[in-house]
Design a protein around this nucleic acid. Sequence first.
DNA 1: CTAGATTTGTGAAACATTTCACAAAAGCCC
DNA 2: GGGCTTTTGTGAAATGTTTCACAAATCTAG
Lengths: 206, 206
Amino acid sequence: MRKIAESTVRRLSLYLRFLEEFEHQGIETVSSEALAARGGTTSAQVRKDLSFFGSFGKRGLGYSVAELVGKLRDILGLGRNYRVAMIGAGKIGSALVQYRGFKTRGFEVVHIFDTDAAKIGKAWNGLTIHDVKEMDSELARLGVDIAVIVTPADAAQAVADRLVALGIKAILNFAPAQLTVPDDVVVKTVNLALELETLSYALKNR
Amino acid sequence: MRKIAESTVRRLSLYLRFLEEFEHQGIETVSSEALAARGGTTSAQVRKDLSFFGSFGKRGLGYSVAELVGKLRDILGLGRNYRVAMIGAGKIGSALVQYRGFKTRGFEVVHIFDTDAAKIGKAWNGLTIHDVKEMDSELARLGVDIAVIVTPADAAQAVADRLVALGIKAILNFAPAQLTVPDDVVVKTVNLALELETLSYALKNR
DNA sequence: CTAGATTTGTGAAACATTTCACAAAAGCCC
DNA sequence: GGGCTTTTGTGAAATGTTTCACAAATCTAG
């Protein structure tokens, strides 16, 4: 498939959210103009983004909300469930495990690991926290698709290396560290410090 | 000042992190090549990014780590402290308040608000949780620079509107909602669902 | 069935960002 | 000091993304 820009994929994800909103409100048809207005972009941008994947609209009429929701779910790979392992049972991990948006989008946390003896064996949301040492056998046993790294920064690379060795192909990283992984592994890093600093920059330059 | 791309600012923030690492290791001088290698980019990119703000290197030698750290802190507006108010005392708010990276970069949480009577009056990290109703008087009293929205999605826009009315110019939004604010207010939204979906897309297309 | 009103899908143009490539500057060694 | 090496800073080229603008498709009304 033709290479699609990350910015395009992010917008598709936004469009999906707005379309679900519209669907909820009983709106059956939407124009690129209306969708753009909801998301703060332009109608041409919406049409171009969609055009990379096919033509889903009807000229003169717009898009069927229900149909486009389905197409976008397909495009984004949301037509299935993902099994998620969380590495690190700290504060952020705790918040994430309880985050409802995870499950409603088909991302199910099936395993939590930590190194802290005080945490191992305890249950979170019905899930027992396991020792990281058991990761090798447990990950394979449970068939995990995505790993979420929520460890301190200095442990993150070592954890990533082990995950890669175990065959994990997608990592969501919350540790403030730049991870190095092979080309066939996808990493998305959410770096709070980075967000704060871009905010600080923007605040200064106005 | 000439308009600088967001991508450039994000990279500067990354460079700063790596430089601090180098400084910690006692490295005094670094080339654009070495800095690029650490961050997974190219030396030309590093030099171009820096060139928007001045020339900080010495030809044939590279950059003084200490000096460049100072320049980048200046550029990013990190030479001062920021007073942060957190709106919402849920799980994510709790994790953020305890996040050390906040304080070490000069972002100090000085106020927490919530609507839940069960939480109001309790203390987090030495900070009393206040009723959102008191926001008007308290924000002004404490001189807050940045607000962090950690409310449910459906409350986020109303909170943002009130913050804007109170004169807040920078918002970090963790609610999965698209906020509408005037042009002179900066909003950075961290949307977990979006990250998961781009991950899902990437996972599917390989 | 025709005329008019909409709205899509998409090449082409405009704009933005990254990469290239090389002159200029600075250190180092003899 | 002169020649060699390294590395910056930066125009120009290449590449990538967004916006424009319009033909083609479809609906509506009479």
